[in-house]
Design a protein around this nucleic acid. Sequence first.
DNA 1: TCACAATGAACAA
DNA 2: TGTTCCTTGTGAC
Length: 302
Amino acid sequence: MPEGHTVHRVANLFTELFAGHTLHAWSPQGRFSEGAKQVSESRLVSATATGKQLFLAFDNDLSIRVHLGIYGAWDVHTLAGVSARAGSPRDASLGAPRRRLGEHESETDPDEPFPPEPRGQVRLRLETPDTVADLRGPTACEVLTPQEVDAVRSRLGPDPLVDRGRLGEEEFIARLTSTRRAVGLVLMDQSVVSGIGNVYRAEILFRHQLDPYLPSSSLDSDTARALWKDWKKLLREGVKTGVMMTRTDLTPAMKTKALRSSAHRYFVYGRAGQACRVCGTAISMDLMATRKLYYCPRCQLS
DNA sequence: TCACAATGAACAA
DNA sequence: TGTTCCTTGTGAC
């Protein structure tokens, strides 16, 4: 499931698998039949991500915007023998005919006929003769004109992998520190910075020993700059490995091991009541704007 | 079989 | 602040 790293991975994989190809698009579930028809049999020009938004641009000038929301997912199946890679060692070693993008990438029955029957509620299927991508459970899946794509993009805060230079960094600092809302809320605000979700929010705050309830405007620019750089680093790593790994207290060997199980990847996320990995205090969990906020009351509260 | 949670966000009031 | 939408997997009965 998706925070910004997952969507960049999807964009990278689709660029590799689909860019330059004519796609057959349809909606097995039926809820996106009209939209799919508008791009079907067109050539995919590009697949790009900004934060949690995926844009698939076609040569008829239309784009599909996909937002996975809280439980959306892509499943990619490739005919054995022509499977492309998402670029990570894990993908390469899998070499599987089927891959689920996100944390769990698993193999399936190699005897399955190709293309496989859509399973469950598939909103959109994209097909070439040797590759199939199934989209299920998105919060958004719509066809946009170039102007509409620009409008969506303009509402988004900087993404470290899109706005790589100084401008992105300065924009982030300006937006972050210009509101008195709690920093725990502001880091999740996609108009301030793109791609951070509930896991990265909690982990980044912990990594900087920050009280989630501090007014965002109280952060000095050095702290803000450090947050941006850290997010950039975590995002890069997440895109590379496909996994959100945020711990800094592990040797490389332990880290590799911890990648495999979500129980060991995080400092605080999902660990309410368990001992802080740094000070041993029980991790707290509060509801912040309907989302679960995890933090260490000793390391982070001032 | 059912309830519930999950890495999200739009919308109403 | 509360409600709604999207789908699947898990665990309790």
